[in-house]
């Protein structure tokens, strides 16, 4: 069965390119442009992994992460963020993330990390 990935970002170009990338690699991909959409899609499709931006309109990434990690079974969560401070990274892990990747990243690295996680 194909692994399901949910990508959440309010930056349309990033969202579209990541969707393209993971689809080409054979994942089942869902995309959300904000936190509320993300929650709804996660409920509906039970993704194995969520790629999550932090700064978004309405609900921020941390809150979405909390929501996801409270589910059983919980999906893996990878933060993709431009927030570069040590504190930001720490905060991401404190919210239960499995990985924190700083933007910009290389597609190769991202794919490799994802494969390790699922």
């Amino acid at each position: 069965m194909r692994s399901k990935i949910l990508i959440v970002d309010d930056e349309i170009n990033i969202l579209m390119s990541l969707e393209y990338l993971f689809k080409r690699k054979g994942y089942e991909v869902y995309i959300a442009r904000n936190g509320a959409e993300a929650k709804a899609l996660a409920d509906a499709n039970k993704p194995d992994l969520v790629l999550l931006d932090i700064m978004m309109p309405d609900v921020d990434g941390y809150e979405v992460c909390d929501y996801l990690k409270a589910k059983v079974p919980a999906p893996k969560v990878v933060f993709l963020s431009a927030k570069s401070k040590k504190d930001d990274v720490q905060k991401g892990y404190d919210h239960g993330a499995d990985l924190y990747l700083l933007k910009p990243f290389s597609n190769k690295d991202l794919l490799q990390h994802i494969q390790e996680l699922i």
């Binding site: 990033i14 390119s17 990338l21 700064m55 933007k103 910009p104 597609n107």
Partner: peptide
Amino acid sequence: THELRTPLTAIRTQ
């Protein structure tokens, strides 16, 4: 830097 990273990410990924 945060604001720079966002378009850079899109550029690099694409």
